[in-house]
Design a protein around this nucleic acid. Sequence first.
DNA 1: GCATGATCATGC
DNA 2: GCATGATCATGC
Length: 466
Amino acid sequence: MKLPYNPNNKNSIIEFAKGLKGKSLRQVCDAELIKNDKKGKGYFGQILEEFYFGYKPNSVSEPDFPIAKLELKSSPLKKLKNDEYRSKERLVLNIINYVNVVNQNFENSDFLKKNASILLVFYLHQTDSDALDYLIKIVDEWIFPSTDLEIIKQDWELITKKIAEGKAHELSEGDTFYLGACTKGANALSVREQPFSKIPAKQRAYSFKQGYVNHIIASIANEGTEVYGKLIPSIEVAKKQTIEEIVISKFKPFYGKTEDEIIKLLRIEMNEKAKSFHANLTKAILGIQLDKEIEEFEKAEIIVKTVRLKENNLPREDISFPTFKYEEIVNEDWDESDFKNILEHKFLFVFFQFENEKLVLKRVKFWNMPYDDIQKAKEVWDKAKEVVSKGQIVKEIKKNKSGKNTRSTNFPNKKFNRISHVRPHAKNALDTFPLPVKDRFTNQKEYTKHCFWLNSSYVKYEIYLK
DNA sequence: GCATGATCATGC
DNA sequence: GCATGATCATGC
């Protein structure tokens, strides 16, 4: 069959691909040829390859168009309330071959051979419609900007190092900045061998973090770049220092200083009462304008947490995460859960400590939860899911001295698990989410919003003091 | 003094 | 109006 483009010529492929813009697969492919027997996640991509570009999907380590050195990737978008587009998820690339990768360097790696130049096709995902009807929004080639490539190289090297140390089974997305090692396979049983350990490791693929994909979308659309401030000023700096080193070197001069002293040294005006005070202080120390977001943090989806320690090094408060919806958690699998997703992020902790009633900057620390601890935190999630599923949230209702009702629950508390617990996180007791199953004790169809918390003792011993 | 239940404040 | 980061209040 003669193709309507030259598969050996990059420009020809890209020009042909642009014919997809504003269309759906049903509009551009011969609908007669498409059998409706393929469903699921990879369906859009398979139809795109076979019935638009006219080649059979394969899984070789070369790019999809080997002569033109171009890899084809399609990925879903979601629409925000303000009509802007964002990536619906991470972008999954080639599977990591644990055995081979330890003999490669970045420049000759399977990863770079396959993904140095990517033809991206972004479509708008719609929950209830057929993949053939998804509207294709963005079609363009993606080549890494040089500073990004430097970060990705460092990420790739860190992943490779972990495998070379026999720790492929401990890989986690939070280990790296832009390029992650995400699990890939039908289920948790999808494992493969690793070269320096007998422990089977979960099958993983290289992936761009969702935040990085959003950045790709924004730069293709050529918009939104003015809302970012850069941490890395040039490729020369990127080659010399990691993001981690840059951040720590900017904070270090302020270690041991009080908040007031830091503000004076930075010569900035700040409202110390403002809710955003700590976020702004972090930006100011990093040399980012207060009205801008930190580009590298957004791309790497780094979660910044400011912690105020008591004199005994214990955080004054546990650390909260967003509330979870009861109706969602009962239908979720751990692997797709919001809680696991958060725990796989990279965090930047900024530790202040009370000394003579004043807050002093102690240190900053990049951290991501070790694989074993994520497994342990799953027990808290499992328990919370069980309690909601069985309608067994409320354990007891008591009146306190002032005559107010106080309920105790069966949600996992601090004693249940050393890492995390579940507690209310609401405007007040009447601020609720609907329940999938009526609560047996109270007969209520809704319950006060709750969320997962990180135990203060865990933060002290496993993050601050380690 | 900590664990647990509950709530506040700001910004979008 | 709500999500989010942060904090308070009570009882053991």
